[in-house]
């Protein structure tokens, strides 16, 4: 009996040794895209464990509600996504298995597009216009001001979910925001020369970046959002470019290259891949490096 009690108290002790670990357990963040996982790491530091459902090589509009994602979301505490229907094809399936604190309207449910001003909000919506999003363009992270706005909401949510570390998140947000502001002012002066420069995109993934930098988006290789480039559309673009040349044709790492290569060959216009999100290329390992790199690439043209 005595041995049993000693053993029992030993087990209890071990359990209590283990339990503080759960008290400082990290907040599990399920990010739909790598940029939001990166933002969560900026704001949450070592107190969060951020997971991204997609990578820079995957079109976030088209992934499958894979079994691994169901498990990930089920074991997460906070969801952060672009929103504006970007994840409409797979996120609803995952959300059914997520905790009640991650449902729309809850503290653990953050949609960036609901926080920032949206571009290209259509006045009229019809599917004949292609796969346009009634809420507007969802690729909001490419304006760094938006990162500050979303970062603030994220810090608020983290502070509520992990109340013990509320001041930690608030301070990290303040730090992030001041570093971002510093960087923005540098980028803005660096990118002055880009203002007004005409550009062609593969898909309207860069509208926020171009809007921020004051560049001019003269067209897209896709005839309509989500519809792959067609020969007739490319021929029209070719004609257009002959009359009004552009500086560069840009696309994301996940867009196919054939259309931009074709147009580039025919017109002599340079075509480049902008990293678009974290690890879109080797140099873009965090949010700061991402903008640094995109501006450098655009300036090189």
């Amino acid at each position: 009996m005595k041995h049993f009690l000693i053993f029992f108290s030993f087990i209890l002790g071990v359990l209590f040794l283990l339990s503080p670990a759960s008290a400082v357990a990290k907040v599990n963040v399920f990010a739909c895209e790598p940029e939001w996982a990166a933002l969560a790491e900026e704001i949450g530091g070592e107190k969060v464990e951020a997971f991204s459902a997609t990578s820079a090589t995957q079109n976030p509009h088209y992934i499958r509600a894979r079994p691994s994602l169901i498990s990930k979301v089920r074991n997460s505490d906070l969801l952060i996504c672009s929103g504006a229907s970007l994840e409409i094809g797979w996120l609803p399936i995952l959300l059914r298995k997520a905790s009640s604190n991650m449902q729309p309207g809850s503290i653990g449910y953050l949609m960036a597009a609901n926080i920032v001003p949206r571009l290209e909000v259509p006045v009229e919506v019809d599917r004949s216009m292609g796969d346009i999003h009634p809420e507007g363009n969802p690729h909001v992270h490419l304006n760094p001001y938006n990162l500050i706005l979303v970062g603030k909401s994220l810090a608020d949510s983290l502070a509520k979910i992990d109340a013990e570390n509320a001041s930690f998140y608030k301070n990290r947000y303040r730090d992030f925001s001041s570093r971002m502001r510093k960087a923005i002012s540098r980028w803005e002066s660096e990118a002055k020369s880009l203002k007004g420069k005409p550009i062609i995109v593969h898909h309207k993934s860069f509208s926020y970046l171009l809007d921020w930098l004051g560049m001019e988006q003269l067209g897209a290789l896709e005839p309509k959002p989500g519809i792959p480039p067609t020969t007739s559309h490319l021929k029209n673009l070719l004609q257009q470019l002959k009359n009004n040349p552009v500086d560069v044709i840009i696309r994301t790492p996940y867009d196919p290259d054939n259309a931009s290569k074709w147009l580039s060959e025919k017109t002599g216009t340079k075509e480049i891949i902008l990293p678009y999100t974290i690890w879109g290329d080797k140099q873009s390992g965090d949010l700061f490096a991402l903008f640094e790199r995109m501006i450098a690439l655009l300036k090189k043209v």
Partner: peptide, 10 residues
């Protein structure tokens, strides 16, 4: 399901 780099769109 297999897709190069997981990008099922292409």
């Amino acid at each position: 399901v297999w897709a190069p780099t997981g990008n099922i769109h292409e």
